[in-house]
């Protein structure tokens, strides 16, 4: 056998392990049986109806969406500030500061979760959705900085100088020239923060007060075997939603890159 054949086989096996479990979600979501196992029993939409009628699930979803949107906005805003500063200016301690911003990327989430919990309680704050947002901003900001840094670095600095030279203020330059040109990077950063926050479990688990997020709710339901098929249905919805979201974002990113004729400005796909 040629080595190329082995390589293709390896890729095939790799992809199956990666994606086959996810493909089982929709299969069992439509299976007319409360036991998740083969052989399949028949087609049903019952599990989706169960989702529709579960009040607690709706609350958890709303919580998660609120947290994810807030996290995306805050983390991306912080990322814009940090990425612009590091790509445009040289300042004392720059490397150390940027390093510390990036550390949560490799810090175990359980450590982040526990330490934040201790600090927040010591400071006398109550746990709420906002404490979760705080934790999520911490872990999402490094991703935003990484994406936006490449967007800012690929931006020709003389464009900003030209705008300033033509009589605009620095602030107007930022909104009229810088932002439109790094927008694809901004959208990417928001999207990835949203996605990370939406399915983050450990930090949310530690920092959630009485209001659970969607992953925390799902984890709680896993104790009841009869709930499993409806969780499969929920997973199916989430899978379709996130794929649609990613595809849409990528479409807009490519379109804007084509329209402005600039090189890849920090997309992540």
């Amino acid at each position: 056998m040629k080595s190329g054949t082995w390589f293709k086989l390896y890729i095939g096996v790799f992809l199956i392990f990666l994606y086959a479990p996810a493909l089982l979600l929709p299969v069992f979501a439509f299976n007319d049986s409360s036991i998740v196992s083969f052989p399949l029993k028949g087609f049903t939409l019952n599990w989706f109806n169960v989702l529709w009628e579960t009040e607690a699930l709706h609350t958890a979803t709303k919580n998660s969406l609120l947290i994810a949107v807030s996290t995306a906005i805050i983390a991306t805003s912080l990322g814009i500030l940090a990425a612009r500063a590091s790509s445009r200016y040289k300042f004392r301690g720059q490397k150390a500061v940027m390093g510390f911003i990036m550390v949560p990327l490799v810090l175990p989430e359980i450590i982040v979760g526990v330490s934040l919990l201790v600090v927040i309680l010591q400071m006398g704050f109550d746990l709420s959705l906002w404490t979760i947002v705080l934790g999520h901003v911490l872990i999402c900001t490094p991703f935003c900085v990484a994406i936006l840094s490449s967007a800012f670095l690929s931006l020709d600095q003389s464009l900003e100088e030209a705008s300033f030279d033509l009589g605009r203020s620095k602030l107007a330059t930022f909104w009229l020239v810088t932002m439109p040109l790094v927008l694809p990077g901004v959208v990417s950063a928001m999207l990835i923060s949203f996605t990370i926050s939406l399915d983050e479990f450990i930090i949310a688990f530690f920092l959630a007060g009485t209001e659970p997020t969607l992953p925390v709710y799902i984890w709680g339901q896993l104790r009841f075997p009869q709930k499993l098929p409806s969780l499969m249905a929920l997973g199916t919805i989430l899978l379709i939603l996130s794929l649609t979201l990613l595809a849409t974002a990528e479409y807009f990113r490519r379109r804007s890159a084509r329209k402005t004729g600039i090189e890849d400005a920090g997309g992540f796909l």
Binding site: S158, E161, A162, F164, D165, G167, K259, T260, G261
Partner: peptide, 20 residues
């Protein structure tokens, strides 16, 4: 006097045409 209030204008080496 900052660049945006000087009576000078510049043609940049890269031209710096706003691509958008």
């Amino acid at each position: 006097v900052p660049a945006n209030r000087r009576p000078t204008n510049m043609v940049f080496q890269s031209y710096a045409i706003f691509p958008h």
